[in-house]
């Protein structure tokens, strides 16, 4: 199995994850969307030096992963290509902001280092939350939730088709790479000279397939709405659970939980 085929199967795995049966899967897509967006906005709003307050923010997605029975390592495995980009954000901050903001023992920590760490943490936490939403909600349910928020059909259809198109693109690329490697033994990857025609063919072939797929949807009455996305029954606990999570998120923003715990336990 080549790398592209593996990547295609990984995309498909998201459907497997979303087909789970945990309490988080049973929540309405709109309630999950609400909590995720609120969480992301809250995390992003932390001050660039508020690293201790930010530590508590990991608890919410972490608990979500446990309830949803989605291993945290799955998130990091699937996002391994994005995480270095997140880590790269703020890498230059220590060079520009050298004011001392914190002293740990004898180590003086500059504002640049703190802001770099908080930026990385914010990125990772937001990715974790988004992944939890995607892993517990099918793409159709997410689109249905967005439609309820009156997001235009054109955008939700675009989101749905993009998700499906990635699979098609990878599938076509996997087939073409396999065919190429069979006729180019001993070569690693596709030769630079062949990239142009390879990419051109890939685009044309995947566009044809995407068009077929869209036609197939149209022929079965698809008109931009997601009537079929609703599960048999969503848990009645959806909104209460979402509101409790939202309250915890907001509380975590205004109360520095680690500082409070150290105050209560250690008296600092």
């Amino acid at each position: 199995m080549n790398k592209l085929e593996k990547a295609r199967l990984e995309v498909r795995e998201m459907d497997d994850l979303a087909a789970g049966n945990s309490p988080v899967h049973g929540m309405t897509p709109l309630s999950k969307l609400f909590v995720t967006v609120l969480y992301i906005v809250t995390v992003v709003s932390f001050h660039k030096y508020d690293i201790t307050g930010l530590f508590a923010a990991v608890l919410i997605p972490f608990i979500g992963y446990q309830i949803a029975s989605v291993p945290v390592r799955t998130c990091f495995r699937k996002l391994r290509h994005v995480l270095p980009l997140v880590a790269f954000v703020g890498l230059l901050n220590p060079l520009f902001d050298k004011s001392i903001q914190m002293v740990i023992g004898n180590v003086r920590v500059s504002g640049g280092v703190l802001s770099m760490l908080t930026l990385m943490m914010k990125g990772v936490f937001c990715l974790m939350a988004s992944f939890l939403l995607a892993a517990t909600t099918s793409i159709e349910e997410i689109c249905a939730g967005l439609r309820k928020l009156h997001v235009p059909k054109i955008l939700t259809s675009l989101l749905l088709l993009t998700f499906r198109y990635v699979g098609l693109l990878l599938s076509e690329a996997a087939d073409m790479t396999e065919a190429y490697s069979l006729r180019a033994p001993g070569q690693k990857g596709v030769r630079v000279e062949a990239w142009g025609s390879f990419l051109g063919q890939l685009l044309l072939r995947s566009m044809d397939r995407a068009e077929e797929l869209y036609n197939s949807m149209l022929l079965r009455g698809y008109n931009g709405e997601f009537y079929y996305a609703k599960k048999r029954e969503y848990g009645r606990y959806s909104w209460p659970a979402a509101l409790i999570t939202a309250a915890c998120t907001v509380l975590m923003r205004f109360v520095n939980v680690p500082a409070w715990i150290s105050h209560v336990i250690g008296g600092f």
Partner: peptide
């Protein structure tokens, strides 16, 4: 190209529900 939903059942109910 015909089957675009995650499972066979979901594909089968896609059209009728639309």
């Amino acid at each position: 190209s015909q089957m675009f939903m995650p499972t066979v059942l979901e594909d089968m109910i896609f059209g009728p529900m639309n």
